[in-house]
């Protein structure tokens, strides 16, 4: 059942990501069951869903960390489900991915963590450029003085911010955020929200944001979808969904 909502928000006609009839199953656990989605360029889309609904699985399929059983995921002009590792790499270079658990390299310093995605372009950039980029993103997340610390020396929220900094250091066209504000105090969380918005403004990124934080959803979302039973259960703006009478949707806005 699909709650009908008007198409909203996005001015651009060309989509950044198109997902068609996506199926993913782990053993007998059907996670994605004929899932469809279109992300427009420069659009911020929030994915809502209960824990275990398959939100993380969905964005891992998009970035190619998981292979779906069936279906298409078109990013730009390529179907990521059919790419070789090298081709996938090329597509990934346009994407950023924030892991739910941060996934900071705990054997490296913060600086090395931030430099790591730059290895992709190692030959083309000078040390000066690298230093500048690191300084810039650290400034963005407000942690300029932590460059030479190890991730283990940072608090959970600081780790999240460093992870965010690492995600955006290459200024990707598409960013997939897996719960960017979970575990942060409200003040920092709002700063992250602003950061996401300013990134979109500055670099015209398109993003998929997984979040349970309704404040975050409210400020960042151009469009919200609800993932339920492996399908896109509802789709609309924040206000549209907020006013919905559907039980499954209302749960999230209480």
């Amino acid at each position: 059942m699909k709650i009908p909502t008007g198409k909203t928000g996005t001015p651009m006609g060309e989509p950044a990501i198109v997902i068609e009839h996506l199926y993913k199953q782990f053993g007998n656990n059907i996670v994605l069951n004929d899932f469809n989605l279109t992300l427009q360029k420069e659009e911020n889309m929030v994915v809502l869903g209960k824990s275990g609904a398959g939100k993380s699985v969905l964005i891992k399929c998009i970035i190619g960390l998981l292979r779906p059983d069936k279906g298409k995921i078109i990013v730009g002009a390529d179907d990521v489900t059919k790419l070789t590792h090298e081709e996938l790499d090329r597509v990934r270079s346009k994407m950023g991915f924030l892991f739910q658990g941060n996934a900071l390299y705990d054997s490296m310093t913060v600086r090395e963590n931030l430099e790591f995605p730059l290895r992709r372009h190692w030959i083309d950039v000078t040390q000066k450029q690298v230093d500048d980029m690191v300084a810039e993103v650290l400034e963005n997340v407000g942690l300029a003085q932590t460059a030479d610390l190890m991730p283990a020396e940072l608090s959970g929220g600081m780790q999240k911010r460093i992870a965010l900094a690492r995600t955006m250091i290459l200024k990707p066209e598409i960013i997939l955020y897996d719960e960017p504000t979970t575990g942060l105090d409200p003040v920092t969380a709002r700063e992250i929200d602003k950061l996401i918005l300013s990134l979109q403004e500055k670099y015209h990124t398109s993003s998929i944001i997984i979040s349970h934080d309704m404040n975050c959803v409210k400020t960042t979302a151009d469009r919200v979808i609800l993932l339920l039973d492996g399908k896109c259960y509802a789709e609309g703006t924040y206000q549209e969904l907020e006013q919905s009478a559907d039980e499954n949707i209302k749960q999230f806005f209480e």
Partner: peptide
Amino acid sequence: ELGSMKVTEQIDAMDVSGTN
């Protein structure tokens, strides 16, 4: 080391960062 990197998705993070 690799086990904990796997579990904390650091290996996936490398993959995504364009490092095999």
